[in-house]
Design a binder for these strands. Structure first.
Lengths: 210, 210
DNA sequence: TTAATAATCACCCAAACTTCGGTATAATTC
DNA sequence: GAATTATACCGAAGTTTGGGTGATTATTAA
């Protein structure tokens, strides 16, 4: 069964009704063809070499392996496969985990006919389909926390720490003594309640202080 | 001049023609009103307390202070002001700098009537207007590099390092001896050509190894 | 305008942790 | 079988951290 000119799509979704519905919608388009529809990642991954999908529509909550782990594995086997998460969750942590795992789009299960197909079109065009809320969540994730407890100087020094600089390098770059750099860093540690550079970096990234 | 129910918009753009054009488009909407249009950030910032904009349309390339620095300053003065970058550049570094500075949207100067207004609407709705390419750039920025020189174990350990863990903590978490953790870390350093935890974290983040 | 507070700078010592340079053996993977 | 990966140990040198002390310069509040 060769399907020239049509993009090969695999659906991984445990709810049979939704799976069938997506199947019909995707197949209704001249540009896409469902080459496999599975209720779990394990089956889908086992069939990957046969299905050779260009695009995967992936649920997050699945029996057995979840969609995030599944995304990791599929991307690991073929990094040119584009994965769109299709989920009820717009919970912050899950979104970022899915993106880190390799997803290129994130839409909700409430997506209708048009939304689903335009997400597929958007992926083919080299874009990244997302709902408004997800887009905002992703953008906000870049923003620096305006309520940082650190002073301007401390923030500068934390920035240099995060770039991997030593006490000596920091002092040279800021034209202050090594001891002064040390004092600032001690104050940073006390404010962030950490006690090493790496911990400070972890906290700074998590709290978006730099 | 009070403008109830209309969102207050400030335009910062040095090309007078474009500035006038945006002015007309924004004012043509019942939902928005331009309360200030400036050719540089300095003037716009000086007038902030009078203009009190809810939304700023900001050019990047400007005489004097550039749009990224301007974004930082405006957000610093009032973090509820939403800033949309309007620019010819879709260059990767500039995009991320603008986002880090506090921008919530990123559209190109080629934006037409509809695109400009729908970007404004999208911001009001709490979204983050972006072109396809920008959205993809942002999403790809989360993806882990599949060409990492590190082994699986080394990647795990680098992950723990980035979480601020010490040698001892790492060894305990992975049920290996402290000396083994040390060996792995030495190998990581040699592969990444760094020689401290913080430098390794910096490189890992930059090269998207974790 | 003074008083208080915050920010920035600087130094000392001891303890703890990290890094460098080796060596070496199972267990896997190719 | 050869190469890679994961495991483990030792000691010396270097860096970082914790606990103090103290001074000068903004900045803010009374």
């Amino acid at each position: 069964m060769s399907l020239p000119f049509k993009k090969r799509v695999v659906i991984i979704e445990d709810d049979q009704e939704i799976r069938e519905s997506f199947n019909l919608i995707v197949n209704s388009s001249q540009r896409f063809a469902v080459v496999g529809a599975y209720g779990n990642c394990e089956d889908a991954i086992a069939a990957l070499n046969r299905d050779k999908p260009e695009i995967v529509l992936m649920d997050i909550e699945l029996p057995g392996m979840n969609g995030i782990k599944g995304t990791q594995i599929i991307r690991d086997k073929n990094s040119s496969t584009e994965i769109i998460m299709v989920t009820v969750y717009e919970d912050s942590d899950l979104v970022f985990e899915a993106l880190k795992a390799g997803a290129s789009g994130y839409i909700t299960k409430s997506a209708n006919y048009t939304e689903l197909l335009s997400a597929l079109e958007e992926i083919v065009r080299g874009g990244a389909p997302m709902s408004s809320r997800i887009a905002r969540m992703v953008i906000d994730n870049y923003h620096i926390n305006p309520n940082s407890p650190l002073t301007k100087r401390e923030t500068t020094i934390l920035q240099l720490i995060s770039e991997g600089k030593t006490y000596t390098q920091i002092s040279e770059e800021l034209f202050i003594s090594k001891e002064t750099a040390k004092t600032h860093i001690k104050n940073i540690y006390s404010k962030l309640q950490v006690n090493s550079k790496s911990e400070a970096i972890a906290k700074a990234n998590h709290d978006k202080l730099i």
